[in-house]
Design a protein around this nucleic acid. Sequence first.
DNA 1: ACCGGTAGTAAGATCATCTGACTACTATCG
DNA 2: CGATAGTAGTCAGATGATCTTACTACCGGT
Lengths: 164, 164
Amino acid sequence: MHVDASTSAAGAPDAEELPLGVLLFIPYRALEAATMDGLARAGYTDMTIAQARIAARIDPGGSRVTRLAEAAQVTKQTAGFLVEQLERAGYVERVPDPTDGRARLVKLAARGHAARQEILPALAEVEAQWLAHIGPERMAHLRETLTMLREIADPFLKDRTGLK
Amino acid sequence: MHVDASTSAAGAPDAEELPLGVLLFIPYRALEAATMDGLARAGYTDMTIAQARIAARIDPGGSRVTRLAEAAQVTKQTAGFLVEQLERAGYVERVPDPTDGRARLVKLAARGHAARQEILPALAEVEAQWLAHIGPERMAHLRETLTMLREIADPFLKDRTGLK
DNA sequence: ACCGGTAGTAAGATCATCTGACTACTATCG
DNA sequence: CGATAGTAGTCAGATGATCTTACTACCGGT
């Protein structure tokens, strides 16, 4: 392989100096790719990554569009649009929210549950590879640390707890 | 504040059970938001987040479009398109790559460097908040762990080192 | 009852990204 | 040296993702 000036700077010496944003992007993106792989392997070719992002945030008892929007950090219009697509494809259903006449709850339909059952093992597989590479302590530490960061970095959570 | 069925499930009991992908998304997204804040505050209103993602990956000596595409995990057409926009806006310049007659190097122009000087403190501010919240050990550990994950999770890096 | 705030939908516009295709250059091999 | 496989970057067309503005109907507090 020909090594030229534009690539020679890409070796290990840079590894410690990458911006945190770039470092966070890589595993995040890998898990999204795994999600799409899991879906594709199971034949679910009609769910886009943006839809999957929304679907992943639907609570067991159902979630409102506005809540999904906040959790995914998109506008309610975007969330509504994606929910609409998911509903059309049979992944979710929308039912009235018994506690508020304006609202509706988005729930996973059977197809949505089935798709989730294909995504989870794909994610587990990637996480197992990470576990094998960095060890169980680091893995647990990572989850802990990210959970702590969420306390101050998640605009949705800050809104809810009044920490903002 | 009215607590209803759709929101009552969002409390602290769920915190330990969030998917890793969601946990990674939150800080990642926060840093992207900080980037855009830093730019806006300095008056750079003509750089989009996708452009910023590309610009962030330009090496000091310049980078090829294909390399930027790999690093940002988009197609070369997308990278080229974003570089074109950055060039038009004066953030980057493109010069011939002396080592390959087909290629060109994308370098930060003066405006690009100036914009980067506004982004960095905005990122540093957010990271300082994280540091204050989780402590220096966890912060260092996080960077280490993410750096290790990059070794196996970064398709670009795997290509380069032949680990794939 | 009034009013400020909120849930969700409509409409229009822009940004982000992909696939397929092509030309020109590079590196390798016989 | 010529042939060939592979690569860098550009063109063209299409689609997905997201935002802003606006609006109607419902909710909760005074």
